[in-house]
Simulated assay, not measured.
Amino acid sequence: MISRSVIFGVLASTLVGVAASPAQDSRNLVESKESLYNNIYVYEQPPYVSMTFGYNRRIYTESMYNTQDDKDLPVEYTRYMTASLMYAKDVHSILEIGFGGGRTSWYLHRFLPNVQVTSVELDPAVLELAKKYFGIHDEPKFQVVNRDGRIFLTESKDRYDIILIDAYRGPFVPFHLLTKEFYEIVKNHLADGGVVAQNVEPSTMLFDSAVKTINAVFPQLDFYKADGNIVTVAYDGAERKPEDLAAVANERDKAYGLRYSLADMLNQRRRIQIEGGQVIDASAKVLTDDFAPVEALKNIERHNRKMP
Rank of each mutant, 00 (worst) to 15 (best):
I59G: 15
E121A: 08
Y48L: 13
N114C: 12
M265D: 00
N229S: 01
V115G: 02
I136C: 07
Q220D: 02
F291M: 06
S3I: 05
G257T: 06
R159G: 09
A238Y: 03
H176R: 08
N114V: 11
R240N: 12
Y183M: 11
I2Q: 14
N146R: 12
L262C: 06
Q273Y: 03
V91P: 00
I59V: 11
T213L: 05
E96M: 15
Y160W: 14
L287N: 04
I136H: 04
Q143C: 12
V117A: 06
I272Y: 07
F175K: 12
R302N: 15
K33F: 09
D281I: 06
R169I: 06
L206V: 12
R270W: 04
P174K: 11
N299L: 14
S93C: 07
D123M: 08
I274F: 02
F207N: 01
M205K: 15
K71T: 14
D90R: 05
N250D: 12
N38L: 08
Y80Q: 01
M86C: 00
D192A: 10
G101W: 02
R57S: 11
V75H: 02
Q198E: 15
E96Y: 03
I59Y: 15
H137T: 15
Q220I: 08
T232F: 02
K298P: 00
E31G: 05
G276C: 03
L108M: 15
V248L: 08
L29Q: 08
N38K: 05
A88F: 03
F291E: 09
T232Y: 03
V120S: 07
S35Q: 04
V16A: 12
S13G: 11
D90Q: 12
W106P: 01
E121T: 05
T288F: 12
P171S: 03
Q24F: 12
H176N: 13
A246F: 07
K225G: 08
G237N: 03
A296K: 15
Y260E: 10
V126C: 07
T67I: 11
T52V: 10
G257D: 11
Q220M: 13
A83S: 11
V233T: 10
K33T: 07
K33M: 14
N229L: 01
R27P: 04
T78F: 00
P22M: 07
L15T: 09
L164C: 03
